[in-house]
Protein backbone atom coordinates (compact mmCIF):
# COMPACT_ATOMS: atom_id res chain seq x y z
CA UNK A 1 0.00 0.00 0.00
CA UNK A 2 1.14 3.54 -0.74
CA UNK A 3 1.58 6.30 1.81
CA UNK A 4 -1.52 7.92 0.33
CA UNK A 5 -3.63 4.84 1.00
CA UNK A 6 -2.29 4.51 4.54
CA UNK A 7 -3.11 8.18 4.95
CA UNK A 8 -6.71 7.67 3.88
CA UNK A 9 -7.07 4.81 6.35
CA UNK A 10 -5.53 6.84 9.19
CA UNK A 11 -7.76 9.78 8.25
CA UNK A 12 -10.85 7.57 8.32
CA UNK A 13 -9.98 6.26 11.77
CA UNK A 14 -9.50 9.85 12.98
CA UNK A 15 -12.89 10.87 11.55
CA UNK A 16 -14.63 7.94 13.28
CA UNK A 17 -12.86 8.76 16.54
CA UNK A 18 -14.08 12.36 16.35
CA UNK A 19 -17.62 11.39 15.37
CA UNK A 20 -17.85 8.91 18.26
CA UNK A 21 -18.87 11.99 20.28
CA UNK A 22 -22.21 12.04 18.45
CA UNK A 23 -23.15 8.73 19.99
CA UNK A 24 -21.46 8.99 23.37
CA UNK A 25 -18.97 11.26 25.08
CA UNK A 26 -15.91 9.06 25.45
CA UNK A 27 -12.16 9.01 25.87
CA UNK A 28 -11.82 8.13 22.19
CA UNK A 29 -13.15 11.56 21.24
CA UNK A 30 -10.98 13.36 23.79
CA UNK A 31 -7.94 11.48 22.56
CA UNK A 32 -8.62 12.71 19.02
CA UNK A 33 -9.29 16.25 20.21
CA UNK A 34 -6.08 16.53 22.23
CA UNK A 35 -4.05 14.87 19.49
CA UNK A 36 -5.29 17.56 17.13
CA UNK A 37 -4.43 20.38 19.55
CA UNK A 38 -0.93 18.99 20.09
CA UNK A 39 -0.29 18.53 16.38
CA UNK A 40 -1.51 22.02 15.56
CA UNK A 41 0.82 23.58 18.12
CA UNK A 42 3.77 21.46 16.97
CA UNK A 43 3.18 22.38 13.34
CA UNK A 44 2.63 26.06 14.20
CA UNK A 45 5.88 26.21 16.13
CA UNK A 46 8.02 24.58 13.46
CA UNK A 47 6.38 26.33 10.51
CA UNK A 48 6.59 29.80 12.01
CA UNK A 49 10.15 29.24 13.17
CA UNK A 50 11.40 27.84 9.86
CA UNK A 51 9.40 29.88 7.36
CA UNK A 52 9.08 33.21 9.13
CA UNK A 53 11.41 33.74 12.08
CA UNK A 54 14.50 32.23 10.44
CA UNK A 55 14.27 34.18 7.16
CA UNK A 56 13.45 37.33 9.10
CA UNK A 57 16.52 37.10 11.30
CA UNK A 58 18.98 35.46 8.91
CA UNK A 59 17.98 37.22 5.67
CA UNK A 60 16.25 40.50 6.38
CA UNK A 61 18.23 41.52 9.45
CA UNK A 62 21.62 39.78 9.25
CA UNK A 63 22.17 39.37 5.48
CA UNK A 64 20.46 42.52 4.17
CA UNK A 65 21.53 44.51 7.21
CA UNK A 66 18.10 45.99 7.97
CA UNK A 67 19.09 46.68 11.56
CA UNK A 68 16.15 49.05 12.08
CA UNK A 69 13.98 45.94 12.21
CA UNK A 70 15.46 45.23 15.63
CA UNK A 71 13.08 47.91 16.98
CA UNK A 72 9.91 45.94 16.10
CA UNK A 73 11.67 42.77 17.25
CA UNK A 74 12.04 44.38 20.69
CA UNK A 75 8.44 45.66 20.61
CA UNK A 76 7.29 42.14 19.75
CA UNK A 77 9.38 40.58 22.51
CA UNK A 78 7.78 42.89 25.09
CA UNK A 79 4.58 40.84 24.78
CA UNK A 80 6.27 38.05 26.77
CA UNK A 81 6.29 40.32 29.81
CA UNK A 82 2.69 39.18 30.15
CA UNK A 83 3.99 36.07 31.90
CA UNK A 84 5.59 38.15 34.69
CA UNK A 85 3.03 39.62 37.05
CA UNK A 86 4.76 42.89 37.86
CA UNK A 87 5.60 43.57 34.22
CA UNK A 88 2.23 42.93 32.59
CA UNK A 89 1.81 46.60 31.74
CA UNK A 90 4.89 46.42 29.51
CA UNK A 91 3.17 43.76 27.35
CA UNK A 92 0.40 46.29 26.74
CA UNK A 93 2.82 48.42 24.74
CA UNK A 94 2.95 45.70 22.08
CA UNK A 95 -0.82 45.35 22.28
CA UNK A 96 -1.10 49.12 21.95
CA UNK A 97 0.93 49.02 18.75
CA UNK A 98 -1.30 46.31 17.27
CA UNK A 99 -4.53 48.01 18.39
CA UNK A 100 -3.40 51.38 17.06
CA UNK A 101 -2.31 49.84 13.76
CA UNK A 102 -5.63 47.97 13.44
CA UNK A 103 -7.83 50.93 14.39
CA UNK A 104 -5.86 53.27 12.12
CA UNK A 105 -6.15 50.91 9.19
CA UNK A 106 -9.90 50.42 9.78
CA UNK A 107 -10.47 54.17 9.69
CA UNK A 108 -8.10 54.77 6.79
CA UNK A 109 -9.06 51.97 4.41
CA UNK A 110 -12.67 50.94 5.16
CA UNK A 111 -14.63 54.07 4.15
CA UNK A 112 -14.23 53.60 0.35
CA UNK A 113 -15.60 50.05 0.65
CA UNK A 114 -18.67 51.13 2.62
CA UNK A 115 -19.27 54.31 0.64
CA UNK A 116 -19.55 52.21 -2.50
CA UNK A 117 -22.16 50.14 -0.68
CA UNK A 118 -24.09 53.29 0.21
CA UNK A 119 -23.95 54.70 -3.33
CA UNK A 120 -25.01 51.37 -4.81
CA UNK A 121 -28.14 51.39 -2.63
CA UNK A 122 -29.47 54.53 -4.31
CA UNK A 123 -30.48 53.11 -7.68
CA UNK A 124 -32.83 55.07 -9.95
CA UNK A 125 -36.52 54.30 -9.39
CA UNK A 126 -37.19 54.52 -13.14
CA UNK A 127 -34.83 52.50 -15.29
CA UNK A 128 -35.04 52.37 -19.11
CA UNK A 129 -38.45 54.04 -18.93
CA UNK A 130 -39.83 51.36 -16.59
CA UNK A 131 -40.48 51.23 -12.86
CA UNK A 132 -37.46 49.62 -11.22
CA UNK A 133 -39.23 47.34 -8.70
CA UNK A 134 -36.08 45.49 -7.69
CA UNK A 135 -34.16 48.71 -7.10
CA UNK A 136 -36.97 50.23 -5.02
CA UNK A 137 -37.36 47.05 -2.96
CA UNK A 138 -33.61 46.91 -2.39
CA UNK A 139 -33.54 50.52 -1.24
CA UNK A 140 -36.50 50.00 1.10
CA UNK A 141 -35.05 46.87 2.67
CA UNK A 142 -31.67 48.52 3.36
CA UNK A 143 -33.31 51.60 4.90
CA UNK A 144 -35.84 49.65 6.99
CA UNK A 145 -33.19 47.15 8.14
CA UNK A 146 -31.14 50.11 9.38
CA UNK A 147 -34.30 51.51 10.98
CA UNK A 148 -34.81 48.23 12.84
CA UNK A 149 -31.36 48.53 14.38
CA UNK A 150 -31.97 52.13 15.42
CA UNK A 151 -32.26 51.78 19.19
CA UNK A 152 -31.79 55.38 20.27
CA UNK A 153 -35.30 56.59 19.32
CA UNK A 154 -38.75 55.32 20.25
CA UNK A 155 -40.55 53.46 17.47
CA UNK A 156 -44.08 53.45 18.81
CA UNK A 157 -45.91 54.89 15.80
CA UNK A 158 -45.65 56.27 12.29
CA UNK A 159 -42.96 55.64 9.73
CA UNK A 160 -40.44 54.34 12.25
CA UNK A 161 -42.84 51.72 13.64
CA UNK A 162 -43.99 50.33 10.29
CA UNK A 163 -40.59 50.81 8.71
CA UNK A 164 -38.83 48.80 11.38
CA UNK A 165 -41.57 46.15 11.19
CA UNK A 166 -40.98 45.80 7.44
CA UNK A 167 -37.25 45.71 8.15
CA UNK A 168 -37.77 42.90 10.63
CA UNK A 169 -39.53 40.71 8.05
CA UNK A 170 -36.91 41.54 5.43
CA UNK A 171 -34.22 40.48 7.89
CA UNK A 172 -36.09 37.22 8.49
CA UNK A 173 -35.85 36.52 4.75
CA UNK A 174 -32.12 37.28 4.93
CA UNK A 175 -31.62 35.04 7.97
CA UNK A 176 -33.69 32.32 6.33
CA UNK A 177 -31.50 32.35 3.27
CA UNK A 178 -28.43 32.34 5.51
CA UNK A 179 -29.85 29.29 7.33
CA UNK A 180 -30.53 27.56 4.00
CA UNK A 181 -26.97 28.24 2.83
CA UNK A 182 -25.41 27.20 6.13
CA UNK A 183 -27.34 23.94 6.07
CA UNK A 184 -25.83 23.18 2.70
CA UNK A 185 -22.36 24.13 3.92
CA UNK A 186 -22.49 21.81 6.92
CA UNK A 187 -23.86 18.93 4.89
CA UNK A 188 -20.99 19.45 2.41
CA UNK A 189 -18.56 18.93 5.27
CA UNK A 190 -20.20 15.66 6.28
CA UNK A 191 -20.18 14.57 2.61
CA UNK A 192 -16.48 15.48 2.40
CA UNK A 193 -15.65 13.27 5.35
CA UNK A 194 -17.81 10.39 4.11
CA UNK A 195 -15.91 10.61 0.81
CA UNK A 196 -12.64 10.19 2.70
CA UNK A 197 -13.92 7.02 4.38
CA UNK A 198 -15.88 5.37 1.55
CA UNK A 199 -14.01 6.69 -1.48
CA UNK A 200 -10.38 7.31 -0.54
CA UNK A 201 -9.95 4.60 2.12
CA UNK A 202 -12.41 1.82 1.32
CA UNK A 203 -12.72 2.45 -2.45
CA UNK A 204 -16.40 1.53 -2.27
CA UNK A 205 -17.53 4.66 -4.10
CA UNK A 206 -16.31 5.91 -7.47
Amino acid sequence: MTAEQWGAIAGSICIIMAWSYLFKESDVYYFAEHLFVGLTVARGLTYTFENQLKPLILKDIAEKGQWSLLIPVVIGLLIYCWFFKGLRWVARITMGFWIGYGAGYTLAFSPPVYLKQVFDTFTPFIKDGRFNFEGVLYFLVVITALMYFLFTVKKESGVLKYGSMFGRYALMVAFGSAYGSITMAYLSLVIGKLQVIFKDALHLVK
Binding site: C14, I15, M17, L22, A32, F36, L39, T40
Partner: peptide
Protein backbone atom coordinates in the same frame (compact mmCIF):
# COMPACT_ATOMS: atom_id res chain seq x y z
CA UNK B 1 -3.07 16.13 6.04
CA UNK B 2 -4.21 12.76 7.31
CA UNK B 3 -4.48 13.24 11.03
CA UNK B 4 -4.70 16.88 12.11
CA UNK B 5 -6.84 18.15 9.23
CA UNK B 6 -9.12 15.10 9.32
CA UNK B 7 -9.78 15.36 13.07
CA UNK B 8 -10.40 19.07 12.90
CA UNK B 9 -12.60 18.73 9.81
CA UNK B 10 -14.60 15.90 11.40
CA UNK B 11 -15.20 17.89 14.58
CA UNK B 12 -16.41 20.85 12.54
CA UNK B 13 -18.52 18.56 10.32
CA UNK B 14 -20.44 17.45 13.41
Amino acid sequence: NNIAIQISGAIYAM
